[in-house]
Design a protein around this nucleic acid. Sequence first.
DNA 1: ACATTTTTTTAGACAAGCCTAAATCATATA
DNA 2: TATATGATTTAGGCTTGTCTAAAAAAATGT
Lengths: 223, 223
Amino acid sequence: MISLSPAEENYLRTIYNLIAEGLEKVSTNEISAAVNTKAASVSDMLKKLAEKELIDYRKYYGVSLTEEGRKRALHIIRRHRLWEVFLVDKLKFSWDEVNVIAEELEHVKAPLLVRRLDEYLGFPKFDPHGDPIPDEFGELSSKPRILLQEVPVGQSGKIVSVSDSSAAFLKYLDKVGIYIGAKVLVLEKTDYDGSQELFIDNQKKVFVSKEVAGNIQVMLHPS
Amino acid sequence: MISLSPAEENYLRTIYNLIAEGLEKVSTNEISAAVNTKAASVSDMLKKLAEKELIDYRKYYGVSLTEEGRKRALHIIRRHRLWEVFLVDKLKFSWDEVNVIAEELEHVKAPLLVRRLDEYLGFPKFDPHGDPIPDEFGELSSKPRILLQEVPVGQSGKIVSVSDSSAAFLKYLDKVGIYIGAKVLVLEKTDYDGSQELFIDNQKKVFVSKEVAGNIQVMLHPS
DNA sequence: ACATTTTTTTAGACAAGCCTAAATCATATA
DNA sequence: TATATGATTTAGGCTTGTCTAAAAAAATGT
């Protein structure tokens, strides 16, 4: 996955936001206004982004995002909105001050940083403006994440994170075949000790204890 | 006050750090190694920084910071070290992981951000490596720090920083029970090889070689 | 003290991102 | 439907920060 420059990221996020305003394509001029850059420069950049297959670009017509472009944009927006939460919740900025600062912070790429920040903030679902925060797969789910513990029998979902990232825990997960992104279906629950039987990727049955299930977060599938 | 590009800031911080290692000028090659850039490019940049009167630059001779350059460098270092504190204290990174990330974060300029961050972190005086954090006027708190090597027998102090932050060294320190903030009393010194016997936290005796003692900085207790 | 080696600088090139000015396309209207 | 108007693209140029290759200066060794 090639990495994008701050400028490219800015365009991508801007295009996403403009399109999310309802339309399905954006004009060069609209982008130009939004990124505060002359239309000629925007044309240049659009050519480059089209080259990289992040946008669909037809001259004199308009721009939309490719699937890849959309995913990238959502990752950038995720960083942006998490920083906004940080600025408001922790540093006591007001919600109308944070956009500018978040525009700088969003380009800091270290992936572990974003995950830790997310965790530190308590996995917020919405930014201070009420906009939803995409998950780390670039999914904009309004669907809540819940602990595997809490998933009812018969429900399935995707494993999206773990709270305990000790080597021992990760090794254990690996051994039993559980990984971030895996599909998980809860087959059975034992009231007595809270342990569960899972069906991973429609393939493999796994038993997990209550402790383990309490350290795994799941995004529910529409059931 | 003209604002500097991330690249310029990097050079400035690097030059400050190299000079702080004791010398009073730095060579092009040393800078080149530290910023991971060819010497030719460094020459270009030095010319530019000299133009802006941030460094004193004599061709083929070496570089030092002007008063203004030093102040700028300390502001950058302030940001850098505050972010390091954030990463370790709040996001639970370990102290040897944070430098790279802080190098990105340090270039985010919003001045209010830095002040709020400082406040949020409780106005820390030292970063996770024990290096002092300049105040917002670019002043370093001036309690004297000396090398453990130089501490006389019978004197005690607090370990405030290490010069070598390689994983190997940090692991070694951990093993023998030395850490940033530990109280250390010098029990004995061997003239022959410069090794020392230490008493850590009034609890544990430790032998260290001259090499090790030369990489540890101590703030003396008023004796 | 001179030759060799190392360090540093200069010269020339290139990519990224921006700009202005001019050309081209799309469209709204008379 | 011809044309004026506005949107968009192209052409050409600038700055920043990098590079390689070659020249110049400094340091080193014999």
